[in-house]
Nucleic acid binder design. Structure first.
Length: 429
RNA sequence: GGAGACGUCGCAUAGUCAGGUCUAGUGCGCCACCCUGCUAAGGUGGUAACGGGGUAACCCGUUCGAGGGUUCAAAUCCCUCCGUCUCCGCCA
């Protein structure tokens, strides 16, 4: 939820953001109208309510039954009136909320306008291998995974349907190594590791902004009216919901380890081979609660940590500044790190870090107390998230570090997490 | 799953049976000031959030786990839900 005061005071800023995202700027004016209506009907209700309370007090103090009866005659009518006005004010407020919830976070200055293809490349790091020069055709991650007996998509499909898989043997160990390396990285940077719930209540899912335009991406458990999370960001954002947090010692930093579930509705035929786009995977996710003034610096910090992880597994990648239209509804700015995928000759998103400013915190009621002009004041905090590692990284690691015989060199940074193993070798080799 | 108890202002509690000076009392903690020669004690005042109005002092409204209902009036009565605890049953 965006700040209503900002929308009132600087509607043009919000309109510009809507335009940059390709959303409807007229929504801003609809909110302004609804807000005016809410305020006038609320004032009416409150005035009547005050009158009613004053009358009620007189009834209680009535000295005789006659006086009491006399007073009661007036209050009955008043009560009906109050009830009606209250309903009006409530409806106006609900209408305002409904409109306000449709407005995505206001994008930050510098975010490129436009859609999915209008990103700006911030930098490219590392050089993709020249397999032609090395004299062999690279195998794709699934072929490698099957040779290594690391990935089994056939049985995944048999048991759970398409886009499911088993990681077996060295595949399972590789994922654990990766995630453990990510947790170690998080701890090294002062993040508190967390193992989080993956089923959450509706208000938490709604608060993180995932029930908007892309609600059909989310698994819903109808029998319990709960949701399976697509990332531990949800559980970590909800962790401090309706709390007043203390950020005087710096941001609160968490690293969530969880399974992630995504329906991948509308992606039929896209990335169908292997484990690039799957319904269930694991992820270590960073999540920070920061003061608004510190949010941009914290965002840079999360991005730097993601790059450290990519360096650890020795992958060539680029960093992109996502365009406004491709931001989630909660994000005000987003950077993705994309690793080079040799067999597809394209970049594949491995990490994504978003600065959600106060958008999520406002919905979830995460606030802090700050001193301003000598008096204390409550205000929403900023939330940020970023990926440290996911199952998908296995794709890029296998492909980029493969050798001619189908074995795969283990990047040095991962070896400590694999008992010193230097090469993954095909079964029977 | 069954039976019961409970959920009040940061924490602890009073208030709920018998609806109306509850504008939610008290203690602790915290803040300010006062007093006091001394690591103490005492005194006075303040001490929530959200929304609306106002330059401001301040005023008004909402909130007693959540949501409904009864009533002129609900912390208090009724219903539903959520959570915590105790006991029982079942299960890894």
């Amino acid at each position: 939820m965006i700040d209503l005061k900002l929308l009132r005071d600087q509607p043009d800023v919000v309109r510009a953001s809507q335009v940059a995202r390709g959303d409807d700027p007229a929504l801003v004016d609809a909110v302004l109208d609804a807000d005016a209506l809410r305020r006038s009907s609320l004032a009416e209700f409150e005035q009547l309510r005050a009158e009613q309370k004053a009358h009620g007090k007189k009834v209680a103090q009535a000295s005789s039954p006659e006086e009491r009866a006399e007073l009661l005659r007036h209050t009955k009518e008043l009560a009906e009136n109050v009830k009606a006005r209250e309903a009006e004010a409530g409806a106006a407020s609900a209408r305002l909320d409904e409109l306000l919830l449709q407005i995505s976070n206001v994008v930050l200055d510098g975010v490129p306008a436009g859609g999915e293809d209008d990103f700006v490349v911030v930098k490219e790091v590392g050089t993709p291998r020249d397999f032609a020069a090395e004299g062999f055709e690279p195998r794709d991650h699934l072929e490698l995974g099957e040779m290594l007996r690391a990935i089994d998509t056939e049985r995944g499909a048999k048991v759970s349907g398409s886009r499911f898989y088993y990681l077996t043997g060295i595949g399972a160990r590789l994922e654990l190594a990766l995630l453990n390396a990510a947790v170690a990285k998080a701890v090294e940077h002062g993040f508190t590791p967390m193992i989080t719930p993956t089923i959450v209540n509706p208000e938490i899912m709604r608060g993180t902004g995932f029930l908007g335009a892309h609600a059909d991406e989310i698994y819903y458990l109808g029998a319990d009216d709960q949701y399976l999370v697509g990332t531990s960001e949800v559980a970590l954002a909800g962790y401090h919901a309706n709390e007043v947090v203390d950020l005087s010692e710096g941001p609160l930093r968490y690293a969530g380890w969880s399974a992630c579930y995504r329906r991948e509705a509308g992606s039929y035929g896209k990335d169908t081979r292997g484990i690039i786009r799957v319904h269930q995977f694991h992820k270590v996710e960073m999540f920070s609660y920061a003061r608004v003034e510190d949010a941009a610096a914290e965002h840079a910090r999360l991005l730097a940590m993601e790059e450290e992880m990519l360096a650890l597994v020795e992958l060539p990648y680029r960093v992109i500044d996502t365009a406004a239209g491709d931001l989630g509804s909660s994000a005000a700015r987003k950077f993705d790190c994309e690793a080079w995928l040799p067999t597809q000759q394209r970049f594949l998103e491995l990490t994504s870090t978003s600065n959600c400013t106060t958008f999520q915190a406002r919905r979830l009621g995460v606030r802090e107390r700050v001193e301003r002009d000598g008096r204390s004041e409550m205000r929403a905090v900023a939330t940020l998230n970023g990926t440290l590692a996911t199952t998908r990284w296995i794709v890029a690691i296998l492909e980029n570090h493969q050798l001619p015989d189908g074995s795969v060199r283990v990047p040095e940074g991962l070896r400590p997490y694999l008992g010193g193993l230097e090469v993954l070798s095909p079964a029977g080799a």
